[in-house]
Nucleic acid binder design. Structure first.
Length: 939
RNA sequence: GCUCGGGUGGUGGAACUGGUAGACACGCAGGACUUAAAAUCCUGUUCGCCUUAAAGCGAGUGCGGGUUCGAUUCCCGCCCCGAGUACCA
């Protein structure tokens, strides 16, 4: 029989499901290997050809590892809480759970068609109560923990309470809010419970606090920093504003240093690590206190004295330039601005604040050239030289970073330089080689001048000296600053995990663990209440023993921040995964997914994992050892060109792409599914839409050629290619191999179906190797020839190398070469073909399973077969003629004999007349040998 | 602006640590089979020159230079494209 991919694929997909071929146990004599895909959000649109790219790669990898004797965990599930289902619910009234269920069914059907080797018995869904029970449980652990800097790990809040009871607040070095109290043990014990709880909230790893948040009015919810792009929401693109609100946050900043350090220990793409480094944004510098100059004094020397409470703290990465400070700048929102503005300057300052408030976030970012600011009328004292310097406000200083105040050194910082020029402030050079005629010079070379005790020192010594001086005076210290902020954790939405918290005396309390999961209640409609509370406020009778529940839900990233552990033990109702399961699977060996999660999911997951490790609930510091980003598949749109008549109206005549220059036309997206190799199927086009029924065409060479453009894949551009259609036409094995053949896995590329025929032809040729002309199965038991063994072992080695390097595209090419060679050799020998089936089975599993059985093997054993061992002997070249150059110039095939151990000049005997001609009687000066081959002779 | 990728035929892309550039596939052209078409198979396909032909010669991996017997690969300078990021003190 000819290659009947439909029957074959259906048969094997059913076989795998029925026999649970890929079900994996939590213990085995084999070494473990965990291959994970980023689980999808089940959207209504279903899968397009871009989605499976990473899944196919990980499936090939998982199947390969299985063949190489590993116990492979390769699960799949759904990240099924999220906005689109809720938006749809708002529009239609349909419960998001129903929409989600339907979408999951579609996804499952589509995934099954591609022949993945997932262990579906381990499926998880973040929106199912037996899963989110554990999301809520981990939330509770975070609430019950604080970060002990001394131990550099999270610890139980009870330990902190015990310390407070015995020693008060002294001796605690914690990552916490800034407004913590200092108290003795007696004072603590005397506090009432509510005051104690309020204080503890400042330490907890998830906490409720009034903070400035990104508020998106259109979505009716707050968003985390990574969900906001350029002042607009990532989902939907609605405007986002800053607003102060009581909000749940996660104290991810406690882990900033560990998150940064950990990056050096994991095998991730460098750009992705770089993105996380930037996001964490560590800068090493110093904080310096500038005492506020009291206008009642007449000269600065009266202030030499100890630093009072009346100071402004700045953060700087260049404390060495402190003698160049000629003014200070505060952010307009800085809390000291009102009190430091003198009556004379009040009007100017107020006007400036009003003006900068009016500017949107976007304007402020875009407009970085105009210098603006206002003088407050106050002065501060530079602690190193007691000079009096003026205090300004300007919006180039951001309230959210550092202390919201900077010391301005116009000679070393370009923004300060422009500001100084504009307001006519002095610019003092402080380094001998500094060139500051036209712009600031931030050099670290040279030695200091105009810098008192630092004069003559270099950068390193000067920095150390000035920090020592400031510390001695209590006016500053070395400090590390991070750009990363704590992550906002609450969302004012319905379709998410309820927060397991109730309120008593306005303070949050955890519900009892035995009451988990806290089930998402039913509500009548999915909108905020009339009083502006989140949708959960609509739930009737929803309370905890009469106390009000928290009405926010958790953000989308909550469930995905630990889901890989749940796959290890998905049915466990006592723990999120048993200790035993976690000890066996440890962490993910290979994770494949998109780089768009760099500063979201991938950072939060690392954070939770580190926390779980601190709690002895996980054993590895990093969750994902190796990570590969598959590239995005872009859409490839096709266009037709509609002729415009004299009145400028569109006619029903369409001009082929090559001829558009000769006519007046406009372009129109055309469905890519009625175009093949950029040639329009005219009949299908006429049927495509009613108004094209009588369309006429101006053709070139009898064909209608379409225009092409690369765009995002979207329905409105008619460029969405659905994997179902391709599977129906060519089969899953072809789709799998073609997606790999398309190009390097990590590269973004447009989808293009043009080459899929080639892969299909390859599979047919492969099928034919096992069959005679009449398609009767026929293999020979003869011993293989040298040439046949060479072909086989070339591909065995190539696949090994390529899988290591994730270079799946070149493997597909190599399979084609192998099959072409074996076809030429008319090879139908079992000894060769059986091994070839095993090697190819990771890529094209269905056809290989079928052939495996035809070869007489037991059904279902292929996935765990003995992988053929590569033997380098079969690849040794037996011909001696190879190209050689003389003086790097000419190339020819020569027969040369030489002693490989000592490729000395004497040992080269050149027996070819042509070479003799080139050597021209001279003996060669030098012989260049590469890998035992002469490649060049220098005469 | 900064950081990281990347520029190779008509197209997607090969070329592992410097060693026959363009594998493999698409497309295109020609041919075989066929009443015809589809399918399949075969041949050719970087560009230019030369030749009846076989063959040969020259140029060629964004541009300019360098190192080397030899550079798509390494170094310096520039141009272009993509991604991320940005008053971060």
């Amino acid at each position: 029989m000819d290659y009947q991919f439909k029957d074959i694929e259906q048969k094997w997909q059913q076989f795998w499901a029925k026999n649970q071929t890929f079900k994996v146990d939590n213990d085995s004599q084999k070494p473990k290997y965990y291959v994970l895909d980023m689980f999808p959000y089940p959207s209504g649109a279903g899968l397009h050809v871009g989605h499976p790219l990473g899944y196919i790669a990980s499936d090939i990898f998982a199947r390969y590892k299985r063949l190489r004797g590993f116990n492979v965990l390769h699960p799949m599930g759904y990240d099924s809480f999220g906005l689109p289902a809720e938006q749809y619910a708002i529009q239609t009234g349909q419960h998001p759970a129903i929409t989600t269920e339907t979408n999951i069914a579609t996804y499952r059907r589509q995934l099954d068609q591609i022949g993945f080797s997932f262990d579906w018995s381990r499926e998880v869904r973040t929106s199912s109560p037996d899963f989110y029970k554990w999301t809520q449980w981990i939330f509770m652990q975070l609430f019950n923990s604080w970060y002990n800097k001394a131990a550099d790990k999270a610890e139980s809040i009870e330990k902190l309470v015990a310390h407070f009871e015995q020693n008060g607040s002294s001796g605690i070095n914690a990552v916490c809010d800034e407004d913590i109290l200092t108290f003795t043990a007696d004072e603590w014990n005397a506090m009432n419970n509510n005051d104690q709880q309020e204080e503890l909230l400042k330490y907890r790893l998830t906490y409720l606090r009034e903070s400035t948040v990104n508020w998106c009015a259109a979505l009716g919810t707050v968003l985390a920093n990574d969900e906001v792009k350029d002042g607009f929401s990532e989902r939907g693109g609605y405007p986002v504003e800053q607003k102060k609100m009581m909000q749940w946050s996660m104290r991810i900043t406690a882990y900033a240093e560990r998150l940064l350090q950990g990056l050096d220990t994991i095998d991730w793409p460098e750009p992705l690590k770089e993105m996380q480094r930037n996001w964490i944004g560590k800068s090493v510098g110093a904080s310096v206190k500038f005492t506020i100059y009291d206008l009642r004094f007449t000269n600065a020397t009266d202030h030499q004295s100890p630093v009072t409470d009346n100071y402004i703290e700045v953060f700087t990465t260049r404390v060495d330039t402190i003698f160049g400070v000629t003014f200070l700048v505060l952010a307009p929102e800085h809390e000291l601005v009102p009190s430091l503005t003198t009556p004379e300057q009040k009007a100017t300052v107020d006007a400036y604040i009003a003006q900068s408030k009016k500017k949107s976030e976007l304007d402020r970012m875009a407009d970085t050239k105009t210098v603006s600011g206002a003088f407050t009328g106050s002065y501060v004292i530079n602690p190193v030289n007691n000079e009096r310097v003026p205090l300004y406000i300007a919006d180039y200083v951001l309230a959210g970073y550092g202390t919201g105040a900077v010391m301005a050194v116009p000679s070393g910082d370009q923004r300060d330089y422009l500001f100084a020029k504009h307001f006519d402030l002095p610019i003092i050079p402080i380094i001998d080689i500094q060139k500051i005629e036209t712009e600031a010079d931030p050099t670290k070379e040279g030695t200091y001048i105009n810098s008192d005790f630092m004069n003559g020192l270099n950068y390193k010594d000067g920095t150390a000296k000035v920090i020592e001086f400031l510390e001695g005076k209590g006016a500053g210290k070395a400090k590390v600053n991070f750009r990363m902020r704590d992550a906002i954790f609450g969302r004012q939405r319905y379709w998410g995990e309820p927060v397991p918290v109730y309120f008593k005396d306005n303070l949050p309390h955890l519900i009892d663990e035995k009451d988990l999961p806290l089930i998402l209640p039913e509500i009548d409609k999915y909108l905020p209440t009339e009083t502006g509370e989140p949708p959960l406020g609509r739930a009737t009778g929803w309370n905890y023993n009469g106390f009000e529940y928290e009405l926010s839900t958790m953000p989308g990233w909550a469930g995905s921040s630990f889901y890989w552990y749940r796959y290890m033990d998905p049915k466990n109702d006592k723990e999120f995964a048993s200790k035993k399961a976690i000890e066996y699977w440890k962490n993910v060996d290979l994770y494949i997914g998109g780089s768009e999660h760099a500063t979201g999911h991938l950072l939060y997951s690392r954070f939770w994992n580190k926390f779980l490790k601190d709690m002895n609930l996980a054993i590895e510091e990093e969750p994902f050892k190796k990570l590969i980003n598959q590239g995005m598949i872009q859409g490839r749109s096709n266009f037709v060109y509609r002729l415009i008549d004299d009145e400028g109206r569109g006619t029903n005549t369409f001009v082929s792409h090559g001829l558009v220059k000769e006519y007046k036309t406009y372009e129109l997206h055309v469905d890519v599914n009625i175009v093949e190799n950029d040639i329009l199927d005219i009949n299908k086009f006429k049927q495509w839409r009613e108004d094209f029924k009588n369309a006429e065409f101006i053709l070139e060479n009898g064909k209608y050629v379409c225009g092409v453009e690369i765009e995002k894949m979207s329905k409105s551009k008619f460029n969405v290619v659905n994997p179902d259609d391709l599977i129906a036409k060519y089969g899953a094995d072809t789709l799998r191999m073609y997606e790999m053949f398309l190009g390097p896995l990590e590269q973004s590329k447009p989808w293009n179906t043009n080459g899929i025929e080639g892969v299909f032809k390859f599979l047919r040729k492969f099928w034919k190797l096992f069959h005679d002309e009449q398609f009767n199965f026929r293999v020979s038991e003869e011993a293989p020839s040298k040439a046949e063994l060479k072909s086989l072992h070339k591909i065995i080695r190539k696949v090994e190398e390529d899988i290591d390097r994730f270079s799946f595209n070149t493997s597909v090419s190599s399979f084609m070469i192998a099959v072409n060679e074996l076809t030429d050799l008319k090879c139908n020998k079992r000894a060769i073909l059986q091994d070839l089936v095993i090697v190819l089975s990771s890529y094209a599993p269905h056809i290989c399973e079928e052939l495996w059985v035809l070869l007489g093997n037991e059904a279902g054993t292929l996935s765990y077969a003995d992988y053929p061992k590569f033997n380098p002997e079969y690849l040794i070249e037996d011909e001696f003629a190879y190209p050689i150059s003389i003086n790097g110039k000419m190339k020819m095939n020569l027969n040369i004999s030489l002693s490989l151990d000592a490729p000395a000049i004497e040992s080269v005997v050149v027996g070819n007349a042509d070479v003799q001609k080139y050597l021209d009687g001279k003996s060669p000066k030098k012989v260049i040998v590469v890998k035992g081959r002469i490649v060049n002779i220098v005469v």
